[in-house]
């Protein structure tokens, strides 16, 4: 783990990514204790305020502190991204390895399910679910997780297929290891590398999907802050103050850029085929 971080740090893109990711994590996780204001506290008299000593990034159309709301939105974005990816990673790994070991018919059904999910536009799917069940954080997580499952499932299946007949798995079978032990101790640890890389590359995707859904008003319900709703509110009041849009847009851009750079550097650091020994 230490060696991987070291390799990422040596890559300039990776270093920038690592710093940005650290900043986003800090903002999202520690933000609520660091920022000076309650993100939901209204102060109509101070609305549309520019950056000041009291409000570093200014205030929004209801006079709420923008920095506090960005931190709160970051918390939402991270919560959605990490839990979505955790669900998709677990389900995808399970289905992918199952597909690799299943008889041909089972394998075909799983792959067909993956194809159907990937063929469906995720935004349309999301709108349909929200229309039926109403908006909510849990629904956002569920929708995005389902659309990402094929992503992880296909990679997990390909990795499992390439390892399925490797001598070390056969050696464990000869020793008498149970299928569960084979899967948890020997198979999964060896296919996890590429999946983790994929997961880190998917974080910015999920963050933008969440922001997009919230922007359309079908994601995180108000008054909870989300970078998407911040952008939306900012746009409707753009003529009064550019600050909400600038602040929310910049944070969103930096966060996705950071996770993308980090993911790419992580891939290079983990994948031995891309690694050049000194």
């Amino acid at each position: 783990m230490h060696a991987v971080l070291k390799r990422i740090w040596r890559d300039p893109g990776g270093r920038a990514g690592l710093l940005l990711v650290a900043a986003v994590l800090l903002l999202g996780l520690a933000g609520p204790w660091m920022v000076p204001h309650d993100p939901n506290k209204l102060n109509i008299l101070a609305r549309f305020g520019g950056p000041s000593a009291a409000h570093w990034l200014g205030t929004d159309h209801l006079g709420r502190d923008l920095l506090s709301r960005l931190a709160d939105g970051g918390r939402v974005a991270l919560l959605v991204a990490l839990s979505t990816i955790a669900v998709a990673l677990a389900a995808g790994t399970l289905l992918g390895t199952a597909a690799a070991y299943a008889p041909p018919q089972g394998e075909r059904s799983i792959l067909a399910a993956f194809d159907i999910i990937s063929a469906f536009p995720s935004l349309v799917f999301a709108l349909a679910v929200v229309a039926l069940m109403g908006p909510g954080l849990d629904k956002v997580i569920l929708i995005v997780a389902v659309t990402l499952v094929p992503h992880f499932g296909r990679v997990a299946r390909a990795q499992t297929l390439s390892l399925r007949n490797s001598p070390f798995l056969e050696a464990e079978r000869v020793l008498g290891a149970s299928p569960l032990r084979l899967a948890l101790h020997h198979l999964v640890p060896n296919i996890l590398g590429p999946l983790v890389v994929l997961a880190s590359m998917d974080v910015p995707v999920v963050i933008t999907i969440e922001a997009g859904l919230s922007f359309l008003g079908v994601g995180v319900p108000p008054p909870r802050a989300s970078w998407g709703t911040l952008l939306h509110d900012g746009y409707t009041t753009l003529s009064q103050s550019p600050w909400p849009v600038i602040a929310a847009g910049a944070v969103l851009t930096l966060a996705t850029l950071g996770f993308t750079l980090f993911g790419e550097a992580l891939r290079d650091a983990i994948d031995p085929k891309l690694r050049t020994e000194p």
Binding site: S166, P167, F168, E170, A171, E172, H185, H186, N190
Partner: peptide, 9 residues
């Protein structure tokens, strides 16, 4: 095993 290194997890 024939390929001893490959037979070790």
């Amino acid at each position: 095993f024939q390929d001893p290194a490959a037979a070790l997890s």
